[in-house]
Amino acid sequence: MTRFVLASGSQIRRQVLENAEIPFEIIKPDVDEAVIKAERADLTPAEMALVLGEAKSEAVSRQHPDALVLGADQTMELDGQLLDKLPDAGLARDRLKAMRGKPHHLHSGLALFRNGRKVWTWQQTSALHVRDFSDEFLESYLEKAGWALTASVGAYAYEGLGAQLFERVEGDYYAIIGLPLLPLLAVLREEGVLPS
């Protein structure tokens, strides 16, 4: 079987792969996302997700040329702007108020590299429509959400309490939580990581 590496420290991506019973190991990439975002400010949020995923995959692939390496990233776009994760949970109230009653987009970018060369990429966008929630709900949410306020760019974990923020979504569940699984499974079968 082909050695498969996840170039990510994301707990949710790890969980998705484990739940699908995909054999993999984790090697965190040494990639400075802030530098890439500054140098490539001309990119759209969707393009940025793919560029960041490629950078992670390539960095680990150069160190482990025998492996098929997956790099993944997700960006959030609100009102045409690329947003970053919040450095402090205290900022979540303003972020959530800005999102209230409006759609935003999550862009997923996946890249597979082997021996420092790109093998495959995938970009997928999901639209999430935040409901016009009350201030009372917002305060209750902020009190209960905990780690989710800074773990994701939208200050929510869609797979948990964060689902209560939305009235509807357009997109694949796995893409929304950060790892479009079905297209990945297809290419892993082609590349010999999984049986066909």
Rank of each mutant, 00 (worst) to 15 (best):
M1I: 05
D66N: 10
S126K: 14
L179R: 04
L43S: 01
A148H: 08
P87S: 03
F113G: 00
H105D: 03
F24H: 13
D73N: 12
L161S: 12
P195Q: 14
F24T: 05
T121Y: 00
Y174K: 07
R131M: 01
A148Y: 01
M76Y: 04
L82A: 15
L96M: 13
Q124C: 06
V16N: 00
E170W: 10
R100N: 08
R3H: 11
L128G: 02
A20W: 12
E191W: 06
S61C: 13
R168S: 15
L184C: 10
R93I: 11
E170P: 04
F4T: 06
V169A: 11
L68W: 02
V60N: 04
Q11E: 14
D42I: 00
E39K: 14
W147R: 14
N19D: 12
A59V: 00
Y174S: 14
G101R: 11
V5N: 03
K28Y: 07
P45D: 05
K85A: 04
L43D: 03
E77Q: 14
M1Q: 07
I36F: 07
R114S: 14
L161G: 09
L6T: 02
L188V: 02
L86A: 12
D73R: 13
L110D: 02
V5D: 00
G178Y: 04
L128I: 05
D42V: 06
P180D: 13
S61M: 09
A127N: 09
S196K: 08
R40M: 13
K144P: 01
D32F: 02
V193F: 02
T150C: 08
V5C: 09
R114L: 05
H64W: 09
G9I: 00
A49W: 08
D84L: 11
F166H: 13
T2I: 06
H107A: 10
W120T: 03
L70E: 02
V130Y: 05
T121W: 08
P45W: 03
